Simulated scan of single mutants.
Amino acid sequence: MSSRHTETELAALAKQLKSWASELGFAHLGISPASNAAHADKLRDWLARGYHGDMEYMSRHEALRRDPDALLPGTVRVISARMDYQPVAADAQQLLNTPSRAYISRYALGRDYHKLIRKRLAQLAERLGEHAGQHHRAFVDSAPVLERGFAEQAGLGWIGKNSMLINSRAGSWFFLGEIYTDVPLPVDPPQETGHCGSCRACLDDCPTGAIVAPYQVDARRCISYLTIELKDAIPEEFRRAMGNRVFGCDDCQLVCPWNKFAQISGEADFSPRHQLDDSSLLSLFLWSEEQFLNRTAGSPIRRIGYQRWLRNLAVGLGNAPYHADILAGLKKQRPLAEPMVAEHIDWALAQQQSRAEVLARSR
């Protein structure tokens, strides 16, 4: 195509992009304008309330989220793509109901999605560049992008009361990625909003009450934030509510009625590795640092590091039913832990010892 394209040519290119995206494993692709003022205003309000906690980068890069042109000059369209990730794995609810087992968020059971999706988006952007435009850039959590806002505008779903993007045909078990482009492709209509209706399942089920109001999540209370983003001690007020959730939390998705339409992913990379979908808390807690590094290579879990991994698991063990092996395992790791982690181990030991005393009195 030449540098100036007819509407017919641009429409044909948009259709071709969606076909290419499907070939690359994406379940849905949509195109939106590069302006996103309404969602940017909501972000500003969220930041003003302090709901981002220690995620300082959220406020530091707010201006870039508001203005795509600041990230890629000349951007006029945002292409949003969805890739389903729900794996074949041990039953999530059964795991949550078995307090001695470790619950790891479904998205983190396999390989890190960032590289896989970024590579495929880059391929898609390259194909686009062969036909039109000069400036294209792919993003997968790699830059300050209002991805859910753009995806909503592009017709990939609506932002639900749990702040997740929900699709009426696929639920919410999917990843998002974007391409900024200077090609004025025709935009897609947004999905109708308001499909959450009067449902309060996610608000009522959140273990820590992090969904403080419909469409408002206080990250400082969210188990995903506490186990992944927070670098310091987990506040004691949330430890019991964490249960056996040691990396992320899926509760608001597990209870969402729309997820009955979710599709199992065909991507082998999203399948569970090292039995992370069905392991005991204690077995994971007893990993050495070398084992942790080896078994989380290429996994999103690696980003929290060994000490925070132990911190999270210690809380899970503190919530588990009493067992002599758990008590022994906690004592074994205690001398090796850094001070912040040691405090969590001490908390867990106190919980286990308290249960042991109750059991002794009941005999």
Rank of each mutant, 00 (worst) to 15 (best):
W173G: 04
D204K: 15
P300K: 04
A360I: 06
D84S: 09
A90T: 11
Q263T: 15
A102P: 11
G74L: 07
G177I: 07
C249H: 04
W347S: 10
C196M: 13
V76H: 02
D112M: 05
V76M: 04
V183S: 13
W347P: 11
G74C: 05
I264H: 08
M1N: 06
R4W: 05
N244A: 03
L254Q: 09
H136Y: 12
I326K: 05
H5F: 05
F175R: 07
T75G: 04
T208Y: 11
E267G: 07
H323G: 14
I345D: 05
C196F: 09
G194H: 03
R308C: 10
C206I: 11
I104Q: 02
K260A: 15
H344A: 13
L71V: 02
Y57G: 11
L176E: 09
E56L: 12
A356Q: 15
S224Q: 06
E62P: 00
D218V: 06
E147S: 13
R101I: 02
L293R: 10
S198I: 13
C202A: 11
E289W: 03
E126G: 02
E62C: 01
A348V: 02
A360C: 01
L96A: 08
F26T: 08
Q333T: 01
P235T: 07
A151W: 11
I264S: 08
I117P: 01
A108E: 09
A89G: 03
P207Q: 09
Q191C: 15
P235I: 05
D188L: 07
G74D: 03
Q153K: 15
R120K: 13
P257K: 15
G50I: 00
P235G: 06
A213H: 14
N259F: 10
R220H: 09
G318F: 02
R303Q: 08
H5Q: 15
A89K: 12
E343F: 02
H131S: 15
R200H: 10
A268E: 15
D269I: 06
K115Q: 11
A132T: 13
P321Y: 04
L349G: 02
G305A: 04
K119V: 07
A268D: 14
G129S: 14
Q16R: 14
R239C: 13
L327Q: 10
D141M: 08
Y103A: 03
S168G: 12
F174G: 08
E290V: 05
G50V: 00
S198F: 07
C256K: 11
L13S: 02
L17S: 08
L185Y: 05
T181G: 06
L17E: 07
W309N: 00
W173P: 07
E62R: 08
C202M: 12
E130M: 13
R60D: 13
H135M: 10
M58E: 08
Y306R: 07
Y85P: 05
G266I: 14
A219L: 10
V246Q: 01
S288Y: 03
G209W: 13
A268I: 14
H195K: 07
S80M: 06
D91C: 14
E126R: 03
S163N: 12
P68Q: 04
Q307T: 04
E178C: 09
E147D: 15
L281Q: 10
N162A: 14
Q123I: 04
S32D: 00
T193L: 00
G177F: 08
A92K: 09
V212Q: 01
R82Y: 02
K260N: 12
Q291Y: 00
P184M: 10
L146H: 10
L226T: 06
S265Y: 12
A268R: 15
K161W: 14
